[in-house]
Design a protein around this nucleic acid. Structure first.
Length: 615
DNA sequence: CTTGCGCACAAGCCCCACGTGGACGTGGG
């Protein structure tokens, strides 16, 4: 967990504690909002907090919050947090993770039902006393029971307080693809089915998988619902009505088989299906895609124009006090077509925002839609390994694979000598490897094979080969692999030194973080961007879904600073090429345009750029 | 607790579905 994430988690918990204690809800939501603001900062919080003014400039952070943040950075803790924690029983927070139970209900149970933890809750379910709570009936209790079972299976039931884990996008996406195909098959030809939610927005981790379908007849709807609730791997149905359902699916069975990397979510993932009339498709996609913050901002914009934006369309605002019920249910027609998102954006006079950018971080209010990079724009892979180090393919196999993807260039960049576990090449082996690459290059036509290396950035910022060896390589990708728990100042100096090396082209996975595994380095990113621009070094977006490093918010900063980016799949085996889609999504979240990504350049432009450092 | 408007004090992000039980909490984005 990075420092920013740790602080955000702390503030979020403070907000939850306030809810449980029944403290002023505005204070609570101010803390939740501050937590979100911290999460979307690309600067390491320790650096930000060294300048109180900069902290105050962040939307949602006022004087009191700034002091708490500074306190956290100095002492590693917030006194008020500890004080709140003292007033609430240990096991209570965990109950908030149970769907169906919110702060109000938990507070009542705690105050007069003597429930202070999961065991107490289970007891009150067992003896039926839970039913005496307001708004608690058989259906709600059943849902809670199922949720408890799921949480226990996830492993966190010991009371470690761990929030439910989010799945890597690379694990969630193939599952969603299969479900979409399955539902399409259950319907008639031409049925619209799509995934939405954070998956469609391309977030690096996914909480649940949202699927939208637009059946045209009740019969078709019935078949879709049945197929969804009975798909392979189902471990529980939470809700199933006529138009929506929520289920949990295990990752072990038919929809699992993701090798040993499925551990992220423990045992399963929630999937939500919603069915809508075809003429509401666009409005429903907007709603289901989110983000929540984007939706709210869009709906506010509608209200300012005397309109109401809902999941079904755009309506005249005829009922400000909301007494009459949703407009669509009263037979009122949308004032514009609601079958596409584009039509709704247009009617609200907002430039279309791609799903990946819908985070309410400035996209509403664009003069025009930016031209974001797309998958087919990528024409070169500049970071790949062969059997010479830890890859699975020979040079020729690698080149053939790249050619089949339509690339004009593939760079062979095996590990350098310090990466012993990855079979890094000593200088003599590297020289021999270069010869082999030249030979393969003569054999395989129709693609340029570059001789390169992924050179370790040593702890002090030196590169792992001397300059005269680097000079022999067509391309140098320099990456940090070890020493990833350095403090921010040392890490900054280390990476800056690497960027300043005259032979480096690309800074590979700059922070070395691995999602859900380790935080990696927290350098002063602004300094990195400036140096990369000055020395003409491209910053890598490593497309492996465990890395996605640079991450979205850092890419945003790099784009604003005018940097070049490289989107590379760090290929070790054939399937790694398929990770490109995650790199593209992440790049789009950061606002990358094709001109700024060196992998989109035509062969002449790219090679000229590489050669500028080889004179 | 923050913001916005103005230098002290208000007001505070949207809309729908569901279950329960008659108005509100919760979850979905």
């Amino acid at each position: 967990m990075s420092a920013n994430e740790a602080l955000a988690a702390r503030l979020h918990e403070m907000s939850q504690l306030m809810d449980l204690l029944g403290i002023d809800s505005f204070r609570s939501s101010a803390h939740a909002r501050a937590a979100r603001a911290i999460e979307s900062q690309s600067t390491d919080i320790a650096l930000l907090a060294s300048d109180r003014k900069a902290l105050l400039a962040v939307e949602g952070i006022g004087p009191k919050m700034a002091d708490k943040i500074i306190e956290f950075c100095k002492d590693g803790k917030i006194k008020e947090h500890a004080e709140l924690l003292e007033q609430v029983p240990q096991g209570l927070l965990q109950l908030l993770d149970i769907p169906g139970l919110g702060p109000k209900t938990i507070r009542i149970m705690w105050q007069d039902g003597k429930v202070t933890d999961l065991a107490g809750l289970e007891k009150s379910i067992a003896d039926g006393s839970i039913l005496s709570l307001p708004r608690m009936g058989a259906k709600s209790v059943e849902k809670i029971k199922q949720s408890i079972a799921f949480i226990k299976q996830q492993g966190g039931a010991g009371g470690d307080g761990a929030a439910p884990k989010r799945l890597w996008i690379g694990v969630a996406q193939p599952i969603a693809d299969r479900v979409v195909a399955l539902l399409q098959k259950a319907g008639d030809p031409g049925l619209k089915v799509a995934f939405a939610g954070s998956l469609r927005r391309g977030k690096e981790t996914i909480g649940d998988i949202d699927i939208l379908a637009a059946p045209r007849t009740p019969d078709e709807a019935g078949r879709i619902m049945t197929a969804f609730c009975k798909m392979p791997g189902i471990i529980g149905v939470l809700v199933s009505g006529d138009v929506k359902a929520s289920v949990r699916v295990g990752l072990e069975g038919e929809f699992g088989r993701w090798g040993n990397e499925t551990v992220g979510s423990g045992g399963g993932i929630q999937m939500d299906l919603k069915m809508v009339p075809p003429d509401s498709w666009g409005a429903a996609m907007m709603y289901f895609t989110g983000s929540k913050e984007h939706n709210i901002a869009m709906r506010e914009r509608a209200r300012k124009r005397g309109l109401t934006l809902t999941d079904y369309g755009l309506f005249p605002e005829d009922d400000p006090d909301k007494k009459l019920g949703p407009p669509h249910s009263r037979g009122i027609k949308s004032i514009c077509p609601a079958d596409t998102e584009e039509a709704l954006f247009k009617a609200l006079e907002v430039a279309y925002a791609h799903p990946e950018t819908r985070e309410d971080l400035g996209e509403i209010g664009w003069k025009q839609t930016p031209h974001l990079i797309e998958l087919p724009d990528i024409k070169a892979e500049l970071h790949a390994h062969t059997t010479a180090s830890d890859g699975r393919m020979s040079i020729e196999e690698l080149a053939e694979n790249a050619k089949a993807r339509g690339f004009h260039t593939i760079a062979v960049t095996d590990h350098s000598q310090s990466s012993a576990v990855a079979g890094g090449l000593k200088v003599d082996r590297l020289l021999e490897h270069i010869e082999n690459i030249r030979k393969a290059s003569a054999k395989v036509k129709g693609i340029t094979i570059l001789a390169g290396s992924e050179v370790d950035i040593l702890a002090d910022g030196q590169l792992d080969y001397p300059d005269d060896i680097l000079a022999k390589l067509d391309i140098v990708v320099a990456s940090p692999h070890a020493g990833l728990s350095q403090d921010p100042i040392t890490a900054t100096a280390r990476l800056l030194r690497a960027i300043e090396n005259p032979y480096i082209h690309i800074l590979g996975h700059p922070t070395g973080r691995q999602i859900n595994k380790r935080p990696g380095l927290s350098p002063d990113m602004a300094k990195l961007y400036a140096a990369a621009k000055l020395h003409n070094v491209a910053l890598e977006i490593n497309t492996h879904w465990i890395r996605l490093d640079l991450r979205d918010i850092h890419i945003r900063g790099a784009m604003e600073a005018g940097c070049l980016l490289a989107i590379d799949s760090d290929v070790h085996e054939t399937v790694d090429f398929d990770n490109l889609r995650y790199g593209i999504l992440t790049a789009r979240r950061g606002g990358v345009t094709p001109d700024r990504c060196i992998n989109t350049w035509d062969s002449r432009k790219l090679h000229a750029w590489l050669n500028r450092k080889r004179k």
